[in-house]
Simulated assay, not measured.
Amino acid sequence: MRQEPITHAFFAAGGATYIRSGSGQILWEFPHATRDGWVLPNGNVILALNKSAQYPGGGIAEVDKNGKVLFDWKGTQSEVNTVQDIGKGRLLCTEAGNKPRILEIDKKSGEIKHEVAIQAQTKDHHLQTRMTRKLKNGNYLVPQLLDKMVREYTPKGEIVWEAKTPNWENSAFLSWAFTAIRLDNGNTLTGCTIANLTVEFDKTGKIIWSVSNDELEGRPFNDCCGVQRLPNGNTVITAHHAQGNEVKLVEITRDKKIVWTHRDTTKPGIHHFQILDTNGKPLKGRPLK
Rank of each mutant, 00 (worst) to 15 (best):
V236Y: 04
I207T: 08
F221G: 01
D202T: 02
N170C: 09
P166K: 08
N170S: 15
T204W: 00
W168V: 11
K203D: 00
T204C: 04
T190R: 03
F201V: 08
I237R: 07
T193E: 13
W168H: 15
D214Y: 08
I207M: 05
P220A: 09
C192F: 03
S171G: 05
F178Y: 15
N232V: 06
L230V: 08
L189V: 12
A239P: 00
K206G: 04
G191K: 14
F178M: 12
V227F: 01
E169T: 04
I208A: 05
W176I: 08
L230F: 06
T190N: 10
N187F: 06
R229F: 01
G205N: 05
D214S: 12
E200Q: 13
F173V: 12
I237N: 10
K203T: 12
T238E: 04
N185E: 09
G191C: 07
S212G: 15
P166R: 07
S171I: 08
L230Y: 07
D214V: 01
T235H: 06
V211A: 06
Q243H: 10
T198K: 01
W168Y: 15
D214I: 00
V236S: 03
S171Y: 09
L183P: 00
R182C: 04
N185C: 11
V227A: 00
A195L: 05
D202A: 03
V211C: 11
D184E: 14
C224H: 01
I208K: 06
V227W: 03
L216C: 04
P220R: 04
A239C: 12
K206N: 07
T190W: 03
F201C: 05
R219Q: 14
A177M: 11
W168R: 10
E200H: 03
K203R: 13
V199H: 00
K203A: 11
Q243V: 13
C224I: 00
S210A: 10
E215Y: 08
N167E: 14
T235L: 07
W168T: 12
T188P: 04
H240I: 00
L230M: 15
A180H: 05
P166D: 09
E169K: 13
V211T: 13
